[in-house]
Simulated assay, not measured.
Amino acid sequence: MKVAILGMGAVGRGLLEMADQKDLGLVVTGIADSKSALMDKDGIHIDEVLEAKRVHGFCGDKSLSAVDIVNHADYDVLVEVTPTNATTGEPALTFIRSALERGKHVVTSNKGPIARKYSLLQSLAEKHGVSIRFEATVCGAIPVMHTLKQGLAGNRVLAVFGVLNGTSNYILTRMEAEGLTYEQALMEAREMGYAEADPTYDVKGIDAAIKLVILSNTIWGLDTVLEDVEITGIDCLTTDALRLADDQNCTIRLIAQSIPSRGVLRVSPRILPKTHPLVVEGTLNAVTIETDMAGEITMIGKGAGSVETASAIIGDLMFIRDHYAGRH
């Protein structure tokens, strides 16, 4: 199966490294980063591209771009792993639309297009007889989408709750465990590489809200957008609040929750018993799906990281390979 990859940040490089190490039956025929691109219908030598990126800072021909890959490369699946733009979803949204309109499958880790235009993209995929899959957009390596679509098929999903942001969870864990202030825990998270220089999306709950929108639209076929979510972050939490919770054998976690029957679409700090399944430590993510037949299903795992995200992307690629066998 021929694959074209847009994006050579941590996720893109992690995916290329795993594809090079494993015998997955994938042939990479197109690669683009922010400065250049490379096409070869017979397959690109991944090790050479990774070395070029490491040494020179770009992957290929500077006269080519991601647009050339999307519109002209020979591929069965476009893997879109460029940085997220939560406001417009661009330029990833246009890349994905163009690929679908060419009759190509799409796998993406990019939350922006899925959160903004899920219904449109799903309709385009159906119209052209292809698949758009986005396991990597929510909870990293945890197979949430696969569980919802395949494992829990036939169940009616009543609600979804989760710890969907590892950075915030790490900060809260350290505030609780060591009595650190929010500012001290954030500084430590930056030093550990868990928080960006500008952590706004993480600590103000925006990243978790985007993921909640994706889950809600996928599960219930809604058209919710980020602006529909009631959001409260963790940046105003104090050590005293965590201490008071601890006195009740409880703790605080940033919880995303969607309960359509009650009109609930919210991300906010919640006091939970320490034995609650969503009380996970460090950068872990956790999600609970409440259903009519299976009851509550809780999944816990790594929510970020280049190899962990590559795991989700590869899972989607293998699904397309197996489900559409004979068409490639």
Rank of each mutant, 00 (worst) to 15 (best):
M1Y: 08
M1L: 05
A10H: 15
A10K: 12
G30I: 01
S36Q: 01
K41D: 07
D42P: 07
G43V: 01
I44C: 00
L50H: 10
K53F: 02
K53T: 04
V55M: 06
H56F: 12
C59R: 08
K62C: 05
A66L: 13
V67F: 05
N71I: 03
L93P: 14
L93M: 10
R97F: 03
L100K: 10
E101A: 06
G103W: 00
G103A: 01
H105S: 01
V106K: 06
T108H: 01
S119T: 13
S119H: 14
L124W: 04
K127L: 03
E135Y: 08
A136P: 12
I142R: 09
H146F: 14
L148E: 04
L148P: 15
N165K: 07
G166F: 04
S168D: 06
I171N: 07
M175D: 04
E178R: 14
L180R: 15
Y182H: 06
A185G: 06
M192H: 08
M192D: 10
G193T: 10
A195Y: 03
A197E: 02
T200I: 15
T200C: 09
Y201E: 14
A208D: 01
A209P: 14
I210F: 15
L215K: 15
S216A: 15
S216R: 09
T218D: 13
I219M: 08
V229A: 00
D235H: 06
T238D: 02
D246C: 12
Q248I: 02
C250S: 13
C250I: 01
I259H: 11
S268H: 10
T275S: 10
E281V: 15
L284Y: 10
V287D: 00
V287Q: 04
M293L: 15
A312Q: 05
R327A: 04
